[in-house]
Design a protein around this nucleic acid. Sequence first.
DNA 1: ATGAAAGCGCTAACAA
DNA 2: TTGTTAGCGCTTTCAT
Lengths: 327, 327
Amino acid sequence: MRTSIREVARRAGVSVGTVSNVLNRPDLVADATRDRVKAVIEELGFVRNEAARSLRQGAGRTLGVIVEDIANPYFTDVARGAEAALNAGGFDAIWCTSDGSPEKERRCLDFLEEQGVSGIIMTPVALDAARVARLRTRGLPVVLIDRRIPGAGACSVAVDHVAGGSLAMRHLISLGRTRVAFVSAEPEPPSVRQRRGGALRSLARAGYSSDSVLYVAEAEMTANAGQLAARRLLDHGTLPNGIFCANDLMAIGLVNELTRNGVKIPQDVAVVGYDDIDLASTAVVPLTTVSQPRRELGRIATELALTDADNRHVVLGPELVVRESAS
Amino acid sequence: MRTSIREVARRAGVSVGTVSNVLNRPDLVADATRDRVKAVIEELGFVRNEAARSLRQGAGRTLGVIVEDIANPYFTDVARGAEAALNAGGFDAIWCTSDGSPEKERRCLDFLEEQGVSGIIMTPVALDAARVARLRTRGLPVVLIDRRIPGAGACSVAVDHVAGGSLAMRHLISLGRTRVAFVSAEPEPPSVRQRRGGALRSLARAGYSSDSVLYVAEAEMTANAGQLAARRLLDHGTLPNGIFCANDLMAIGLVNELTRNGVKIPQDVAVVGYDDIDLASTAVVPLTTVSQPRRELGRIATELALTDADNRHVVLGPELVVRESAS
DNA sequence: ATGAAAGCGCTAACAA
DNA sequence: TTGTTAGCGCTTTCAT
């Protein structure tokens, strides 16, 4: 059986209230008493029962974080940024993984609500406005990463993907690579669609027709999917001279497959990724990519969640990181 | 304010006990009543307060999982395996990340204990036997992944790393690659030391001197560290003709760097990794590696945790996956 | 089949 | 400065 505050009180010869004070407002307790109680706590290895605490207080000191895919370095980096900020603020994080499934996302939300978290940070998959609105009415701050749900009162932190796509495309254009392919996923996440939109617009603005833009979509956004995309492009006949991938993982799989087939990067094809994950800089051909301030994203999300702001939307600027794969 | 069971009871015109029964033992409740209560629950979006529930019941239906490094695909795969099994058993997981820091590990344990989890699965960093023993006395099952702590009563699930290292080395030997380097980390995790031990023994058994085995250690076990190791080997003068890396991430960074420098893999150097992460098969040179049944590892850990076994130790067998990098 | 009520461990308001 | 106590929301036992 777990030792309770009562047992500590008994052994220290004080009341439960005093033990509670030692735990929560030590300055109210006389030095001698405090030391004695602390010694007993230490001796017994007492750990406060958080269930009772948050039941009593009505709110815990934990935030829920729902991540779409734990295997994707992009998400894990955002998560780390969030956790760091959160710990700094004396909070703890409860992680959940939605695995991109709306069903699992619902389960995660239920779980977090049951746990009585005092805020939720998430990368939404198929979140409906009603559910968010309900959370908001309950006084739960909800911060969405990289997506907005209009009219639900939730905050969001996002990167300007249109700008990011534009950045990537303008770089390809500056290298004279205007016969481009866009490697994406189907269904295409909103953020990726925005990147593509920004890219196409830049192409058009530079006076090039976007008719010739190849669109390759795979089922996922993994290295494996990138490899499949590369195979498809190779089979297609003539290769484009520039490729913009939906994310770095895909770019890595694609670059590897192209390299294996004797395609020279960037000479034959310039490749641009998105995210600037750790692996990007150590790829066979170090990857030119669009950097998203991921840790920062997590940090700001945490701040919004902790301040319980309403309807605040922060947009961060992406940055082009030029490496060998497109230079 | 969160709606409570009382509010549901009031609106449905029943007592709180009945609502509780609808939630937990629906068969005890008359059909009509049950439907009415369920309708109200739906309408109000009622979510059970888990704090109160587990306070009352003394134990929750959640397990704590402490992962060393959320960015390492090895751990995330184990975690996924664990979560799947756990959900199947009607449990939920609370994740924590120790980031390889003993200090943070302690915090995670405190947090999980406070949360009242009914078991802990972890990849220990610097866990002391006393702490584990205390958890065990409290009736908390503790399952360690890939490490044992003698005499604390905790269970463990591990892969036979000596066998794994041996597998890798014997394969290199069969390819005639006996001038080998071992790429590791400093400090060297026990599991990696075992792999190296197995490898060296196989070398000796095959009648080769292990004097010439190069030992390269970096600070981490990341792709970046692998790249640094490759640089070191390149600077060293003559390259070995076989390299065994402590894990796939290092192997990937190393293979990339070697490839960039015109080293042909496997012709000039054969490379073997460890883990068989997703990226291994799509690497520029698809990676020969030792596969650990990671999901399985997670699954078994969960089972041990849920059955509250004592001192049970499961050892799984690794498997050699031959791909181009050593063939 | 349903209701009434005790009590899980803790915090905070109040009393001493 | 310390003690006493109500009550957070729920489950469960015992009546009805």
